[in-house]
Design a protein around this nucleic acid. Structure first.
Lengths: 221, 221
DNA sequence: GCTCTCCTCCTACTCGGGTAGGAGGCGGCG
DNA sequence: CGCCGCCTCCTACCCGAGTAGGAGGAGAGC
């Protein structure tokens, strides 16, 4: 009995990464993929997966609304929200929408696998990072956090991210992309803000942990 | 017809990493492992591998002398020197000893696989990084480089390395290990020198590329 | 036309990371 | 015993990284 999984994420690279990750597990099988919310709703109905891995930020229909619709059609469906990194309000909204769990993409792979198994078993689960946030949320009332957008990286930012992940310095990245290092800095600042990371080191860790740039050469000889 | 490989390296962790890496390839098979030079000579004679992956730095008998002995017993043996990172004099000595190739552990995995196949096919091959170094060597005469040691990391340096690879800052590492951040800096300077790396970012890349800390949690929730 | 996003580049600033060099304590080993 | 390697910590310094904030050009879409 394998756990049948639907992967819904608009970035093909991310889907590929998770497919690869999950393919290594004997008890997990990716039975369908979706690149937007509508497709996710459709495929969830058709394939009846045991667990749907659902990104929040998707075109057509976001992961929250997709979650609601899937559950409206089948209230036994198990949905594991798998989001890009930062969240804030999204956590609570997703849980209200009926999601069974919430995992950060920068959690270690074992945690994701654990979450899939727990959720498939019928239990709910929050990633420790999320749990911490939820607790903090109920401990404090204010949390005047601005409605910060959960944004996707642009093409250029992805270029820079890839090179960061190979260990290049800003100057080297600039040479590689034919731009100045001040521009590189600009991109990096945006990347770190969007992904809620502290510095490039964390970016490298994230890239490897999520298998973001798998298959691409890591260094030039 | 698979390529039969002997892996000789004194660090179990490293052997495990390469075994895992190679196990993914259909045309490659690890038929034996050795944790020191004497064992490598013995197992090379008994298993007659197509290629021996040989670390230089090993107890009992180093990889260079092991290479000489293996070739003395069987001059058709193919030995691929797989060393930790820095080298200098070792490259030339190893090539004189009759090694068929030289690959850095911080080269990307595909490069190692390519090298194994090339060497198994009877050709010689140097990693681009090595080639560059050899060329530089013959381009310039002086190279007053001191006989820098090819050193292994100490236990404490490994502790720090592990934490670096999780994306922690020096201060965080210090808290984790109950030492000051100046001490952390000292360790890091040594790590970077020994591994011939520029900064912690490259250290993270190296850790992931070689699978150094596989199986250890990458982050705390 | 206008607007918005993206990409580019800039200055100016702060701060953490890394280097250099020294120093003391400790345990193992010849 | 003395030497050496490892671990610890220090000061002082430099530089790359990251932030803040602004600016202009190109292209897409309304």
């Amino acid at each position: 009995m394998t756990i049948r999984v639907l992967v819904a994420d608009d970035q093909a690279m991310v889907r590929a990464g998770f497919r690869m990750l999950l393919s290594r597990e004997e008890d997990v099988e990716v039975v369908a993929e979706a690149s937007n919310g509508l497709e996710a709703v459709d495929k969830a109905a058709r394939f009846q997966p045991d667990v749907a891995l659902m990104d929040i930020r998707m075109p057509e229909l976001d992961g929250l609304e997709a979650t609601r619709r899937i559950l409206a059609a089948d209230e036994t469906a198990r949905i594991l929200i798998l989001t890009t990194f930062d969240l804030d309000e999204y956590v609570y909204e997703a849980l209200r929408a009926g999601a069974s769990g919430f995992v950060l993409k920068d959690d270690p792979p074992e945690q994701l696998l654990g979450a899939i198994r727990v959720v498939a078993g019928g239990d709910a689960l929050l990633s420790p990072a999320i749990t911490k946030r939820v607790i903090k949320r109920f401990a404090r009332v204010p949390q005047p956090s601005p409605p910060k957008e959960l944004e996707e990286l642009t093409e250029r930012e992805l270029d820079v991210f890839r090179l960061i992940s190979r260990g290049l310095s800003n100057a080297e990245i600039g040479q590689e992309l034919y731009i100045t290092d001040t521009t590189v800095k600009t991109h990096i600042t945006h990347i770190l803000q969007k992904l809620n990371l502290r510095d490039r080191v964390q970016a490298v860790v994230l890239a490897y942990e999520t298998g973001l740039f798998d298959g691409e050469p890591s260094r030039r000889g």
